[in-house]
């Protein structure tokens, strides 16, 4: 509801990341491997990276693919197909269910 978003921005202080002001999300460290920068830059636009750790390692490649596709198609993550492929590769390799 557009009207509501405008009202929220006008009359409301949006406390972005109210948690991070006290509880520091930078403590979440992802595994250093190919693609980690792309994952950090893309996923952390909207959410802390503990979502990745929390949902591992029971998600296999198909599960991560479904999750990343939902982030793009439903949540509006601005990712190119190359970004998406690289992110799924990283997640499957580093936070995926052992095949």
């Amino acid at each position: 509801m557009q009207r509501n978003v405008r009202a929220a921005l006008a009359g409301v202080v949006m406390v972005l990341g109210v948690a991070s002001a006290h509880a520091d999300e930078s403590s979440v460290q992802l595994t250093q491997a190919d693609g980690v920068e792309r994952v950090q830059a893309s996923c952390a636009i909207c959410h802390s990276l503990d979502y990745i750790v929390m949902n591992s390692p029971f998600q296999d490649r198909a599960g991560w693919d479904k999750t990343v596709t939902k982030m793009v198609k439903v949540m509006g993550a601005p990712l190119t197909p190359e970004d998406t492929a690289a992110i799924v590769d990283y997640l499957a390799a580093n936070y995926g269910k052992p095949q």
Binding site: N4, A8, L9, M14, I45, C46, H47, M75, G76
Partner: peptide, 10 residues
């Protein structure tokens, strides 16, 4: 009053 991130659903 919460708003969706980016173009996601409110």
């Amino acid at each position: 009053s919460d708003a969706a991130m980016l173009t996601g659903p409110d």
